[in-house]
Computed example of a mutant assay.
Amino acid sequence: MFTISRRQVLATSLVTGLAFAWPPATSADEPAGRLLSLGGSVTEIVYALGAQDRLVGVDSTSFFPEAAQALPNVGYLRRLSAEPVLALTPDLIIAEADAGPPEALAQLRAAGVAIVSVPDEPDIGGVLAKIDHVAAALGLHEKGAELARRVSTRYAGVRERVARVAARPKVMFVLSAGKGAPLVAGTGTSATAIIEMAGGQNPIDGFPDYRPMTPEAGINAQPDVILVTERTLKLLGGMDRVRDLPGIQGTPAARNSAIVAMDGLLLLGFGPRTPDAVWQLALRLHPGLNPVDQAGHRGHR
Rank of each mutant, 00 (worst) to 15 (best):
G218I: 03
L86K: 11
L140Q: 14
G288C: 00
G296T: 12
S13T: 15
A19M: 12
R273I: 04
L128G: 11
R273D: 12
L289V: 08
Q249T: 08
T26E: 06
S37D: 04
A95P: 04
P182Y: 08
L92R: 08
A129H: 14
L77Y: 13
T214H: 06
G33Y: 00
A19I: 13
D29M: 09
W279T: 08
V116L: 01
G75M: 06
L268A: 15
T61E: 00
G33L: 03
P122K: 00
H141I: 08
A28C: 05
A221K: 11
R161K: 15
G199E: 00
F20Y: 15
H141P: 03
G33I: 00
E121R: 15
Y47M: 04
A177G: 14
G250M: 06
D263W: 01
G157T: 10
L105H: 10
G299K: 04
H300V: 09
E103A: 15
E230G: 06
D224N: 05
L266E: 05
A68L: 06
T26K: 11
A95Y: 02
V74R: 11
E160K: 13
L14H: 13
N220W: 13
E96K: 05
G57E: 06
G218F: 03
A25M: 03
V46F: 01
D53A: 05
L267N: 01
T189W: 13
I124W: 09
L38R: 02
A181M: 11
V292Y: 02
A253L: 02
Q201K: 07
P272E: 03
R54E: 03
A181C: 03
D224H: 07
A21K: 11
V74K: 05
Q8R: 12
A181W: 03
D293Q: 02
R298E: 05
